[in-house]
Amino acid sequence: MTAMNRANPDPEPGVQHGKRLIPAEEIYRRLYDGIREMNVVLAADVVAALRAARESESPADGTRPQSRTGSPSAPRPAALPGAACFVLDSILENADIAEREQLPMCQDTGFVLVFVEQGHDVRVEGEPLDRIIHRAIADAYRDGRFRNSVVGDPLNNRTNTGTNLPPAIHYDHVDGEHLTIGCLAKGFGSENYSQTRMLKPTAGPNAVVQAVVETMERAGGNCCPPVVLGIGIGGTMDWAARLSKKALLRDLGDHHRDPYYRDLEERIMNAVNGLGIGAGGLGGGTTALGVHIETYPTHIAGLPVAVSVNCWAERKAVVRW
């Protein structure tokens, strides 16, 4: 289904009573490394997509859609020739510098989401998994000198927890003896534009495309495009939202296995890129780098659709045992 579900690596020693045992320290170390790296090194699939976008942009072109956010009293240029190239060149240079200088690529080092897929025949030895995950995040954010961006109470007293904890952890229990842990560091410049909608059960694919287009029209240039869109369809309201985040863990270009949804991913990609929001919101044909759909059975009376908007700085790490 996703990168999460892919190949079960070679079985390792440590099998006991039909259970595969994985030591806590090994999980901690690989998670810690993955979290350090994802904030500093832009994933290769994202860099490749940004390079392809830069190639496809013409410096002389810069046509933009009508303003949806501007003040009606302020005159606005109809085009910004060369601006999209200026932004994409800067983004690619930023990725080089971040890796070379070991600096976080963005100062918003995000809220951490974790997707655990644990086989029934695998056991973690030495420490409960949630404690390992907490420890790896807190230590990686401290040692990497990443910005702690989590407040302990959302409304009453927004005091920084000082550790970037807690994360949001999702657990799936599946057959087999593999363990996969996927992490996202989700920036909120883009997260503030993510949405879930409850469509009518018979609304059909056009309504799904329209829901995504409206989400991106609302986001405009404020979500740091070009974006990666994770789309969850089905389940309940919360389940669709969860799928939309899990979809972000997939490699760009890793399309849905069902041709129906692969085509829908392509339709949505074309519709969003047709909006002309462009890199940095300054126009051009690159508003989205990728669209990933994840689906789940749903109720006869509903069609939940969730859209997670991720800035170009898609920080992800998937660790497999």
């Binding site: 932004v87 800067s90 983004i91 240079e93 930023n94 990725a95 510098i97 971040a98 200088e101 600096l103 976080p104 690529m105 963005c106 100062q107 918003d108 920036g187 410049g189 740091c224 940095g280 300054l282 800035c311 170009w312 700085a313």
Partner: peptide, 12 residues
């Protein structure tokens, strides 16, 4: 307008 996300570039 500065380019969102380009924190390492501006730092350098």
């Amino acid at each position: 307008y500065a380019f969102g996300g380009c924190g390492a570039l501006y730092a350098q």
